[in-house]
Design a protein around this nucleic acid. Sequence first.
DNA 1: ACATTTATGTCAGCCATGTTGACTTTTTTC
DNA 2: GAAAAAAGTCAACATGGCTGACATAAATGT
Lengths: 163, 163
Amino acid sequence: MLDLIELLFFAYRNFVSDPDEILQGFGFGRAHHRVLHFVNRHPGMRVTDLLDILRITKQSLGRVLRELVDQGFIDSRAGASDRRQRLLYLTPKGEALTQEFVAIQSRRIRRALEESGGESRELVRRFLVAMIDPEDRSSTEKLIARADQAVEARSAARGRTAG
Amino acid sequence: MLDLIELLFFAYRNFVSDPDEILQGFGFGRAHHRVLHFVNRHPGMRVTDLLDILRITKQSLGRVLRELVDQGFIDSRAGASDRRQRLLYLTPKGEALTQEFVAIQSRRIRRALEESGGESRELVRRFLVAMIDPEDRSSTEKLIARADQAVEARSAARGRTAG
DNA sequence: ACATTTATGTCAGCCATGTTGACTTTTTTC
DNA sequence: GAAAAAAGTCAACATGGCTGACATAAATGT
């Protein structure tokens, strides 16, 4: 398995270096990328939810979140039903930046899947899920499924209103 | 591809957390793990080779390397043909620790491959290679092949002498 | 009504690990 | 004998983790 251990190291390093280059231009780092990514995937999420996903402390998150809000990449609105909550949304500016990250990382993955054969997508997906700690798997898969559904719902709504 | 982007994040986080727990007991971090791993794979490698693989600065490496040498995990010997070089070797202590990392990470990968079907190993391998920047692929694959061959050569030598 | 809990934010300081720049020593190479 | 290469070191700085302590606003329970 030594080869796969190392390939995972080299592959992941290149994978995260794509966003890194873009982030440099804004004076941001990887921490900012992660926040933007998950807020994009779960618009209106609470700060606590983000902490649970990232598994970092409130203080660590606070630093990068403040910069993202101050510089107009993220919008933080009080919750309607519970006004203690700060619900997080991307601004158009934040959305544009996040799309860059998604585009470049998707391109790398798509290329890799094409190069590794027809049925690779489902198999790679199963492999990655199985690499996650068993006790975290179902919550992780649910999280991803929820985000995917929300994307579908939003695009369906756009279809009805704007077209 | 959003699901795969996220699965890669979660999977890799768990993957590196295995060694992290062990390292804590020694007051070491991920940087120490990487150094031990590659010195294990390439016994007698030069400091420069390690810098090329890790892509960090001499100063960053210097800190962790000094700790590993001082605490008897790594042995640094002057090269025979070129005495400017410091050739790096694991001590028995370093070897024992490194085997722990390899064992726990191999176990996770093996389990994941089993859970994702029979032919997954070769496909996952091809996928990971294809995730690497094209210009780095051949050197990376050569590096891994060289390390694998060296392992074989050493175990063959053990077979002839000790058994 | 009042006490408690929850969600969030913030200050201060520490640690690990990356960076740049400058400089030294030893040894090899031309 | 000069230049280049391999390695090491000092100093200073950035990022992004961490702990601990504390503050505020709002919801919840009795």
